[in-house]
Amino acid sequence: MSSMGAEPGTVRPGGRTARVRAAVLQAAGDALAEHGFAHLDLTDVARRAEVGKTTVYRRWGTVTSLVADLLADMAEQSLPRTESGSLLGDLTANARLVQRTLADPRQGALFKAVIAAATGDTRTAEALHHFYDTRVNEWAPCVQQAVDRGELPENTDTHEVVRAVSAPLYYRFLTTNSLLDEAAADRAAEAAVAAARAGAYLRSRGM
């Protein structure tokens, strides 16, 4: 097993399956970041992970299934929300987390590869949507707390506010070569808070 194996004594008996999955998903993420979805190959992933290719083919079967599992794991492993006591503080923490992820050379390349693949592959698109739904659901309570504190209008769509924080960061990430820095993250959070306070994200009355 490669260095992805857990430290001695930290794995429950029977934990080999979890170790194999972790090694394979790490290898898949590395390969995606380096070469993109089109060149992702299960045999290469097995070699990188130092796992038998039969194991990889039996468990995942296709590149699409492997990428779906990678995204599921990323959603599970993502950092929990930060609660600062203010909406701006919470959403700034969210924006900076997104910014750090996209600005990271490996993670940024990985997301570009998966987003590109999702435009032409339904299973990958579904997995990507699930990833973002998980992250939005994690942070939406911060917005609901702001509603409860009276910071935002009563009928605010909490999920739309969270999406509004990430949207300009992803747009800049995918359409420009400019540096995605903390200043961009802070502006995104400030803009989302200002718009939410102004009632831009109210649910329609029919909902």
Rank of each mutant, 00 (worst) to 15 (best):
P141S: 10
V147N: 05
T124W: 02
T176Y: 11
V56N: 04
N177C: 05
V45F: 02
A46F: 11
H130Q: 14
E182L: 12
T158C: 15
E160A: 15
P8W: 02
A146T: 05
E34M: 09
A103F: 09
L70H: 13
N137E: 10
L42Q: 08
R123I: 07
E151Y: 01
L110V: 05
Q145Y: 05
D44H: 07
A188W: 06
A118M: 08
V98G: 01
K112A: 11
S166D: 06
A192Y: 09
V114C: 03
D186F: 02
L174D: 09
R48S: 09
T55Y: 04
D133W: 02
A103R: 13
R96I: 11
T156F: 04
L179V: 15
L202G: 12
E7I: 05
G150D: 10
T82M: 07
A93Q: 04
S86C: 08
L179D: 14
T82L: 05
L102P: 07
H129N: 14
T134H: 14
L25V: 11
P13I: 02
D186M: 10
Q107D: 14
A117M: 10
T119S: 13
L180D: 08
T156Q: 04
T10H: 07
Q144S: 11
D44G: 05
T62C: 12
N137Y: 01
R163N: 13
G36F: 05
